[in-house]
Computed example of a mutant assay.
Amino acid sequence: MQPIDELDEKFGLEGEVGFMEIEGELPFISISNKYAQADICLYGAHAMSFIPHNNMDFLWMSPDSFMQEGKAIRGGIPVCFPWFGPHQSDSQQPQHGFGRLMFWDVVETQALPNGETLIRMQLQSSDATKAYWPHDFLAEMIFTIGKKLTATLKVTNTSTASFEYGCALHTYYTISAIGNIQMEGLEGLSYYNQLTGEDGRQNEKLLTVNEPLTRHYLNTETPVVINDPAFRRRIVVEKSGSKVTTVWNPGKEATSGIADIPDDGYEAFVCVEATNAFDYTVQLTPGASYETSAILGLEE
């Protein structure tokens, strides 16, 4: 990992971008500009907070998250790469890949002319990554912090052979209570219900969550709106480079068996994820790149 003082000297922007390491915690980048505040952890290139001015945090972080190397961070925007969910053939491999379990290098910070802030981080293939996955690659997480937060995973094939990968930007949204929200934009879409193993189609205009839910909406790039009347806000979840939208909430019973979420934690978040998985993984030829983005903002 890059030393914090060197990062601050090379990439810090006075009054806008700083690097911090709180005792017992993982190091992170703190961003503050005229639009918003944000925190991004160097471990996993993991966005932990996005707070537009005069609003509350978009991102839910578990108070019980394991903030230590070797364990995934719970909440925020985990970067699932180079596979989504369990490994297809080896159950000993880490859930959702290794991207969220490694330190990423900061390679660029920039104050943009429009007042937004750009942060770019990289993870390159190495002996450590090849212990999990045999391919040569360059993965980048590019964050633009403004009125909206744009998080982009760009993957480049630096090898001499084609490869296939899956990914997700596994975003946890802060909500007033799971029973309060309604989600728009999913009507008419086909989905795979991971909890039952069955395929379905959403006929309802609004999705409400009153039981455990793991749905993967297929072949869609449609924005989703999280309407939260109690918080008086409508979060617009846009995406690009993703053909699957995953909506997840574990419900009460499953949450009690998840060590890094409080027993009542399921009440406070919903995940809406920009995913490439199942029949919609990404095929990359040598030298080719592909970008998957999640764009978080308030309805204007």
Rank of each mutant, 00 (worst) to 15 (best):
F19N: 03
M20A: 12
M20I: 11
M20V: 13
E25D: 13
E25T: 12
I29H: 03
S30P: 07
S30N: 13
S30H: 11
S32K: 15
N33L: 04
N33A: 05
N33V: 00
K34E: 13
A36D: 06
Q37R: 12
A38G: 02
D39A: 14
C41Y: 15
C41M: 10
C41V: 13
L42Y: 01
L42P: 05
Y43Q: 03
G44F: 03
A45Y: 05
H46E: 04
F50H: 10
P52K: 00
P52Y: 03
M56R: 14
M56N: 10
D57W: 01
S62A: 00
P63C: 07
S65K: 00
F66V: 13
R74C: 02
R74I: 04
R74G: 05
G75R: 00
G76D: 03
I77W: 00
C80L: 15
C80Q: 08
P82E: 04
P82M: 05
F84M: 11
F84Y: 09
P86Y: 11
P86M: 11
Q88F: 11
D90H: 10
S91D: 15
Q92K: 12
Q92M: 13
Q93I: 03
Q93R: 15
P94C: 07
Q95E: 14
F98K: 05
F98G: 00
F98R: 06
G99H: 07
L101W: 08
M102H: 13
W104R: 06
V106S: 09
V106N: 00
V107T: 13
V107I: 15
V107C: 09
V107D: 06
V107W: 02
E108H: 15
T109S: 09
T109G: 01
Q110G: 10
L112R: 10
L112H: 00
G115Y: 08
G115T: 10
L118C: 09
L118S: 07
L118E: 06
I119S: 07
R120S: 13
L123T: 09
L123I: 07
L123P: 00
L123K: 00
S125F: 08
S126I: 01
D127N: 13
A128H: 14
T129V: 07
K130F: 02
K130C: 11
Y132I: 04
W133F: 13
H135T: 12
H135F: 15
H135I: 11
F137P: 10
L138Y: 08
A139K: 01
A139L: 03
E140Q: 15
M141Q: 15
I142W: 07
F143P: 02
T144K: 01
I145W: 05
G146P: 01
L149N: 08
L149Q: 01
T150A: 10
T150Y: 00
A151G: 02
